[in-house]
């Protein structure tokens, strides 16, 4: 993608290369932030519809501009820093959360070869960045110097480390079958219509991945780090204004990222469900699939009551970990005997 823009600009030298890199970053980040704004609206509308309410409907037609109004409001508010807070870490924490939510998108392929960086270890990069996500939360919880925030941060640290393990094992299942850590290779292996998609063969681990993704993004029913009923708002309780907005944007960017990862790993990425429909650009299909996964995230939020903390830990370590480990053995066996995948 960077190379394509570099040749498009026509110029030579470091300046134009830098410009091409900058342009490709903007080409991803700007649409992403706008999608985040609409994802928040979408989420609230779905939630409202399930509860037979109207949801946001005042700002703009059908309330479409609600998120932008909220953003403007947060932007104009005062940033409050608690007296006992560790100022530098307090302010760095939301920035880390937001930055990490954005840089993961560098490896997401929107089409064949359309990614800022088509890494050989793309999937490990995603895992690495998502494992860093916990720092924003821990640091904010500690720096706030507040009991509620700290409890939220501790819960979150334990929760995210636990569920990363099963996410890792699910990824191993896919890798063993595809034989590559490159995200583009993983999508290309699913070419040829909906029946080729990983979601059928890997249906059990898809379920595990989806539920672990809910825990990893702190979404209901696993939103214990914020748990407003017991911790007020957990790690974000002391944050206001833009610092809070960064947490909020980062959270939704992460949810969209997880939806994109599921679309890429299990639902054929940019390919159409029927090969005849491949004339429609891949980005449209990918966006549709991300929207579908996001819809499922939103529905779970509306349907399922919050887990108790010990239940959450039990589910992660005593149910998902053994299950996903067993599936690694099963799928590796199938791959070794050539039943699935192409490494036989």
């Amino acid at each position: 993608m960077v190379e394509a823009l570099y040749t498009l600009f026509g110029g030579e030298g470091p300046f134009f290369y830098f410009l091409a890199i900058l342009a490709s970053i903007f080409a991803i980040v700007l649409p992403l932030l706008i999608s985040v704004a609409f994802a928040v609206y979408f989420d609230r509308k779905i939630w409202a519809a399930v509860q037979m309410r109207r949801g946001p409907n005042v700002v703009g037609p059908f309330g479409l501009l609600q998120s932008f109004a909220d953003g403007l409001k947060l932007f104009l508010k005062e940033t409050v820093i608690p007296a006992g807070a560790n100022k530098v870490i307090f302010l760095i924490a939301p920035m880390i959360t937001f930055t990490l939510a954005l840089i993961s998108w560098a490896v997401v392929p929107f089409g064949e070869g359309v990614a800022i960086a088509d890494l050989n270890v793309g999937i490990l990069y995603l895992l690495a960045i998502s494992s860093l996500g916990v720092y924003g939360i821990i640091m904010s919880g500690w720096a706030s110097n507040s009991r509620y925030a700290f409890l939220g941060a501790l819960r979150s640290a334990a929760q995210m480390v636990s569920y990363e393990v099963s996410i890792g094992f699910v990824l191993v299942c896919i890798l063993v079958s595809v034989g590559s850590l490159n995200l583009t290779d993983i999508v290309v292996a699913q070419k040829g219509g909906a029946h080729m998609w990983n979601m059928w063969v890997f249906a059990p681990v898809f379920v595990i991945f989806f539920i672990s993704a809910l825990a990893e993004t702190n979404r209901p029913p696993f939103d214990l780090p914020e748990a407003e009923a017991e911790l007020v708002a957990g790690y974000q309780v002391e944050y206001s204004s833009m610092a809070f907005a960064l947490f909020f944007l980062g959270e939704y960017a992460n949810i969209l990222l997880m939806s994109a990862v599921m679309a890429i790993l299990f639902m054929g990425g940019w390919y159409a469900p029927v090969p005849a429909l491949d004339f429609i650009p891949g980005i449209v299909w990918l966006t549709l699939k991300i929207a579908l996964m996001f819809w499922m995230f939103a529905m779970v939020k509306a349907f399922v009551p919050r887990y108790r903390y010990d239940q959450l830990m039990r589910l992660g370590w005593k149910v998902f970990l053994p299950l996903s480990l067993a599936f690694v053995v099963i799928y590796s066996g199938l791959a070794v005997y050539g039943v699935i995948g192409n490494i036989g």
Partner: peptide
């Protein structure tokens, strides 16, 4: 690149989180 990603996943993502957890 593989070692780099492993370093981030294992040390930064897991070991250092536990360090931080205990020290805090």
């Amino acid at each position: 690149e593989f070692l780099a990603m492993l370093l981030v996943i294992v040390y930064v993502g897991a070991v250092a989180v536990l360090f931080l957890f205990v020290v805090m």
